[in-house]
């Protein structure tokens, strides 16, 4: 069975949603407190949404200095699959595991809504087989405007690192970017919440495709085998 660690920082709020959503696709999960994170033997690590450390300094900035991020970096370097959603995406950018930074929405509003995304890269364990699909997912964030210098943006586009793009941009994000991957493809971050649209009861099931992609990817490629 696929083993997924879900990280919890002070202020994380989406870890139980991920736990529940993964139970629907047959994955085994463990929620880990950020000071005691140990990813040995896991196939994937999730950095869920929330307001870690109250978003003080910048969203994700303080979590970056947690021991969890050191372990996450080791896990990612060894090819482990990592997904950050919302505040998790912000943490991965702050940690330098993904390029650029997430800043205040240009409209200054906290956006809580449903958005349409286009999947533009399937070179990740979370989107395998999904390239070209349109997915409808909820967002809930005040700092989702992805920003980078011109050189970084050029590299992101040239190397095909954009995984999800908004059909209608809700936050002013550069190039309508909603989610990115690293060069290796094992680290993915996105502002929307796949865990909140994994069953009909919640108004949509498109997020489930992302979790199912992970479950079916694990073990099919040496780089994604369980990292010890």
């Amino acid at each position: 069975m696929v083993r997924v660690a879900i990280l919890r920082f002070p202020g994380t709020w989406s870890e139980r949603d991920f736990e529940h959503a993964f139970s629907l696709v047959g994955a085994d999960t463990e929620i880990q407190w950020h000071e005691d994170v140990d990813l040995r033997g896991f196939d994937a690590a999730i950095v869920p949404g929330g307001f870690s450390y109250g978003d003080y300094v910048r969203a994700g900035a303080i979590a970056r200095l947690s021991p969890a991020v050191r372990e996450l970096r080791r896990f990612a370097d060894e090819g482990g699959a990592v997904l950050g959603s919302c505040n998790g995406f912000q943490i991965l950018c702050e940690a330098g595991l993904l390029p650029g930074a997430l800043t205040r929405n240009t409209g200054l509003e906290f956006r809580c809504d449903w958005v349409m995304l286009r999947v533009e890269s399937d070179a990740t364990p979370f989107t395998r087989g999904l390239r070209g699909r349109s997915l409808r997912m909820p967002i809930a964030h005040g700092e989702g405007c992805w920003t980078a210098d011109a050189e970084t943006l050029e590299r992101v586009e040239a190397d095909g690192l954009v995984v999800f793009r908004y059909v209608e941009n809700p936050n002013g994000s550069t190039a309508d970017i909603a989610g990115l991957r690293n060069e290796a493809g094992n680290v993915v971050g996105l502002m929307p919440h796949p865990e909140r649209c994994s069953e009909e009861l919640l108004g949509g099931t498109d997020g489930r495709a992302v979790l199912e992609a992970l479950v079916s990817s694990v073990g099919t490629e040496p780089a994604l085998a369980a990292v010890s």
Partner: peptide, 9 residues
């Protein structure tokens, strides 16, 4: 460098 400012922005 490590916390108070993000060198990207």
């Amino acid at each position: 460098r490590e916390l108070l400012a993000n060198p990207v922005i």
